[in-house]
Design a protein around this nucleic acid. Structure first.
Ligand SMILES: [Mn+2]
Ligand SMILES: [Mn+2]
Ligand SMILES: [Zn+2]
Ligand SMILES: [Zn+2]
Lengths: 136, 136
DNA sequence: GTTTTTTTGCAAATCATTTGCATTTGAAAA
DNA sequence: TTTTCAAATGCAAATGATTTGCAAAAAAAC
């Protein structure tokens, strides 16, 4: 029972495009755009259509393998594996730092009690100034 | 020293369009789209251009009077006054419930210590199933 | 190998949002 | 007040990320 490797959800076919998209998302350190995936794959010498990327990201998000989010002052969506969905963004340099051990989990119960919702997921975006930018 | 009423930020002019947009945002119970503001104003008999709404929302957001966010499965931005920026969304019926007394505030310190960021703001979106939809 | 269904690529369409520009309006200055 | 001038608006056109139609290619089923 090792780490759960990336997999293609039941009912979908295994294609080199699909697998390469997942590979890029796996090595990404924070949420990235469809265009970013496209260029990354071009570097790897993998030819793929942007629409294929969008279609796969939609599927992966529907199946819960990826999470879609938008960042301040950007007009394009970003996608990431679920463990990279909560992050800090520096308002000066744009640096993105993943928040692991999401503190929000501790409040799930409180939220359930107060609002009666059955909570299935969440997304947090925190803005600030990173240590480097604070010095400047 | 009563409640801080809505105001037009220093350096900007007071126009009926600007004020009516703020009024709509004030009475809204959760984040709404530019198009929603447009229709709301049309109902009120106020004639305004969609681009004026977008231009004002951009200004208001830059000045910190409004907060922009995106919701799951939507491809349009929503805007709200800062006290309505954190919310629960029912994945079945789409109901939106504002989270007041944001639990996240309690973790600001922890986040500052761990990552050294000077935190200036945040946005939380929680997905789930509302009590009504749980019964069905 | 053949069939069936899914997936892909490409080009065209969509649609929320942005922008250029002429016109109107707010408010500072006279 | 009236004048003056930058800021704001409306309208139409442009933008650009994302979506979609359709024919060809590829994967899984038979
Ligand atoms: Mn769209
Ligand atoms: Mn755009
Ligand atoms: Zn920084
Ligand atoms: Zn519901």
């Amino acid at each position: 029972m090792g780490e759960q490797k990336l997999f293609i959800p039941k009912g979908y076919r295994k294609t080199k495009q699909r697998e390469s998209i997942l590979k890029v998302l796996e090595r990404a350190e924070y949420p990235i755009t469809a265009e970013h995936i496209f260029m990354e794959l071009k570097n790897d010498g993998i030819d793929i259509s942007l629409s294929t990327i969008y279609r796969n990201l939609e599927m992966l998000t529907k199946e819960g393998l990826t999470v879609k989010s938008y960042m301040m002052n950007e007009d394009k969506a970003r996608y990431a594996l679920p463990d990279k969905k909560n992050y800090l963004v520096c308002e000066k340099c744009g640096k993105i730092v993943i928040i692991d051990n999401c503190p929000f989990d501790k409040f799930k119960e409180e939220l359930i009690e107060v609002h009666g919702f059955d909570i299935t997921g969440h997304s947090i975006e925190v803005y600030g100034i990173c240590p480097e930018c604070q010095k400047k």
